[in-house]
Write a protein that binds this DNA or RNA. Structure first.
Lengths: 173, 173, 173, 173
DNA sequence: AATGAATGAGAGTTCATTCAT
DNA sequence: TATGAATGAACTCTCATTCAT
């Protein structure tokens, strides 16, 4: 699964063959089918793992008792941390979200998570006294998505730390 | 090329066969190879077309003699307009930017365009008297990217007009 | 289709690979899929051909205006002729009738044909004044089936001509 | 072996995997290879068992001291009994007899048995005073084969009891 | 005696590409 | 210019068989 994630994320799902995965992982092609019924099955297993590992990280600290500013900062830091540590998971998920056939599977689980984050943002901005908390939430949410997109495609060449630091300074201090 | 773009964008490059394109376009498989040396070649031709049609739209009005605020609004409107009218182009480009092997080709042309926009933003924010014009430019640029990402994957369910309106109101009025 | 029939009939459907057929027929594996969507499709095409060519031969002369004895002889001769000239078709069909999954397809077309023959026999025996025409029909029908079975599996070593001659002499003279 | 016979007869040899047999029989795949060197070996063992159990049944009562008519009836009854009680064995054997590569193995043992029956029939018909005892033997033998074929492929829908009863009445009473 | 993880050859199938027409 | 029959490499997947335990 690790090798698969690695290859799926860097070369794309359809661009990665089972043979390739098996050879890279140092096992036989046949063995893969002892653990996963199909290539799609393997993908699903990886995505499920990604959800449990990453999506949870993003939402786990949201109900802490801090000030709205601190909460917002925590979420941003959390997104940043997840993005850096689980970049392959997110790269894969984002890439798949462009494929019509994979969408159905992703939508089911991905959408609620996204909406939960937007709701958190909205609540926080409301507590911070903003006039249009929902719109502000969408702005910041979009900002984080855009930041992620750039980091995922460009990688370390994208000055993610400086930007996120500026974002925090802008909204939380 | 039109049919190819349509299919590549909705079904994915690897998920679309030459036969499929030919049949949809109403020509023979063989004829395609009179105009394009390979499937990759066809993709490159489409991407080049996409650049000429879309990327240009984004940058064309930047040297107009308006106020910085008006210039910023114009760029945002331009991005919005392009996103809506050339959504297939951008969907394809963005989806491909996740694949390591396609990156080389894209990077070459895509990066300068992106940097040009960031520079425009930076100049504008400097003229508007912002303290950290570069960082501010990255924020707004990221915001537009995030907005685009959401629109490309979610589609009309994403309230792109309301959000972009709010963005303009926030920065330009 | 000719090569496929040959191989399916002698080696069995599951025992014959597409590669084998293609190589024997002197074409590429890929070409097979220009004409047949799948191996099953190929089999169906062959079986349909078999029906049109053979089953028809068996029933075509049944409404001739001869005496019952002559009619019976004609049917027997027809079966014999078909068996000898289309032995591969019948070998394949009979072999398949043992496979649970092929049965559905075969039953649909095969059963009516069989019943038609039994009915012809019954009518003939009734006209010939037999006491139990239906039972007699089943006997002769079974006899022909058994004769076919032996001829299909043993081949020329089975004295089919002598036996059918005796059968005719027994019932028709 | 029991499970294998069951599966081979109903689903076909090539359609039945070792895994399937092992799972159905409740043992491990590996264990099967402690008792049989290969899948072919397993098939041979089953076929040998089939011969010992079934073919013997058919011939065992032939040298009884009854009248020819009674002997003939006994053989027919025996075939009928065997067919009904060992239908899976015969189904498998008959299905295999269509495959060129299995033939060699089957021919060796099957042919003598068949010829023995024909000889018995011939002797009986000679004792009964028939003019062409050998031909008559072939007719009745073929009749039994045809009856078996129909019963094996159609199953209970084939009126085997009525037909065999009529056959007995025809020749033995 | 018994297991099942592991292998690899080979199955059916797809598809980018070529080329005679 | 235009076709589509033909190819062959590569794909996903299956399964008989082996072997360390």
């Amino acid at each position: 699964m690790e090798t698969s994630l690695e290859l799926f994320a860097t070369r794309g799902f359809h661009n990665t063959s089972i043979s390739q995965i098996a050879k890279t992982a140092g096992v036989s092609k046949g063995l893969m089918y002892n653990y996963f019924n199909s290539k799609d099955d393997l993908l699903k297993a990886i995505l499920l793992g990604a959800y449990e590992e990453s999506a949870e990280m993003i939402t786990k600290k949201l109900d802490s008792p801090d000030t709205p500013q601190e909460q917002l900062e925590q979420i941003i830091q959390q997104v940043l941390f997840t993005l850096k540590n689980k970049s392959k998971h997110w790269k894969l998920i984002t890439a798949l979200s462009f494929q019509e056939d994979a969408k159905h599977f992703l939508r089911k689980d991905l959408k609620p998570k996204q909406e939960a984050i937007i709701q958190q943002f909205t609540r926080i901005f409301k507590e911070m006294g903003y006039d249009n908390p929902l719109e502000e939430a969408y702005l910041v949410g979009g900002m984080l998505d855009g930041m992620s997109l750039n980091y995922m495609t460009i990688g370390e060449a994208y000055p993610i730390d400086k930007i996120s630091q500026f974002l925090i300074q802008r909204y939380c201090l």
